[in-house]
Nucleic acid binder design. Structure first.
Lengths: 183, 183
DNA sequence: TAGACTAGAGAACGTTCATTCTCAGCGCCA
DNA sequence: TGGCGCTGAGAATGAACGTTCTCTAGTCTA
């Protein structure tokens, strides 16, 4: 096993474990066991746990947004498709809310790299929604709905939160169209 | 110092510390130091840290909702006042997001009492909003906005998220009125 | 084939922290 | 006054865990 394969296996193990149980609850030994990579190699690839956490977040950000983007793009970049994607996500077996919000909660004073990764994710999602919705204000409103629905679905375990948010988004998008038409 | 005063001082210290730094980052010794209550007494009042955490959450829930309720009631129970209150909250010096969402993130598998306290808080807030807004669907939409704005304000540090959510709420409430009027 | 480097397995170290124990002091009741 | 029980201070315990170290064995090169 070369170093790049070890890195990938570590990141996959870390994502599974960190997302499922929380970062603090998972020891480096658990990552070693699940990845099949020795501790020595682990610390060669990631000199400290914080580095692994940061890499986990950056990787998850890419994959999460990629999945959303592909799904929505296949539906003609309809902003409402975002909420259909959310509903699928909420209903997945291991769904435990937003990894970035959870990490934010876990670390009172996060290491700088971790804090940056969390903010980066939210910034990127916001930028993506702004690209999807002409009016910037409305994009930000949808963003708040997305975050709220995610948090509530995680806590209540009810994927129907996506439908509630979708209904709200529909009204907000229609109101935007009207105000544009009136001008 | 009798036992009830010790309990109050412990809860106040716990709230300050747990909210500011996260539950896991605060040791029982820090609670002892801040409260001025001896470790022995601490463990008499709360046999384990989880009990203290649970009591902290239940107490914070009461106080948080009380503050919101009073503020909104003083403004004629206008649902939009909720977002004015949020904005004030977001701008407070020590604001670090929703204690319940943060705790949810901290504990991958929370102790039963803690999980129950988190769910209770969200259930109570939802019920409160439903009392404030006639249409149940719209109340739930506002709830998602509240949660989303809180999470984003915590991560970005921008209390303006409250305004974004308020604008969205205004549109949603107006749309509700229209649909009622049309009937 | 000898020697140098490397990897893996797992022991070891040092720290943190929840929880419990010890001990000395002090009020309270006979 | 003399013991009894409770208290606070803080040491002790035991576990978890991030990180490093040791040792053994294999592999590649000259």
């Amino acid at each position: 096993m070369d170093s790049t394969e070890a890195t990938v296996r570590l990141l996959e193990a870390a994502e599974d474990l960190f997302y499922a149980h929380g970062v603090q609850a998972v020891g480096m030994d658990a990552v070693r066991e699940r990845s099949g990579v020795s501790l020595k190699r682990l610390y060669q690839c990631f000199p400290a746990k914080n580095d692994l956490v940061e890499a986990y977040l950056l990787r998850r950000d890419e994959r999460w947004r990629g999945s959303l983007r592909d799904f929505v793009h296949a539906r003609g970049d309809d902003p409402l498709a975002v909420f259909a994607w959310l509903k699928d996500w909420f209903a997945e077996p291991g769904f435990r809310g937003c990894a970035f919000i959870n990490s934010f909660g876990e670390f009172g004073e996060p290491a700088p790299g971790i804090a940056a990764a969390i903010r980066k994710h939210k910034d990127e999602v916001r930028a993506y929604l702004r690209g999807l919705v002409p009016a910037e204000g409305v994009a930000d409103q949808l963003f708040a709905l997305v975050e709220g629905a995610t948090v509530l679905a995680a806590i209540t375990g009810d994927s129907g939160e996506a439908d509630t948010a979708r209904e709200a988004a529909k009204v907000l998008l229609a109101a935007q169209t009207e105000s544009v038409t009136q001008k």
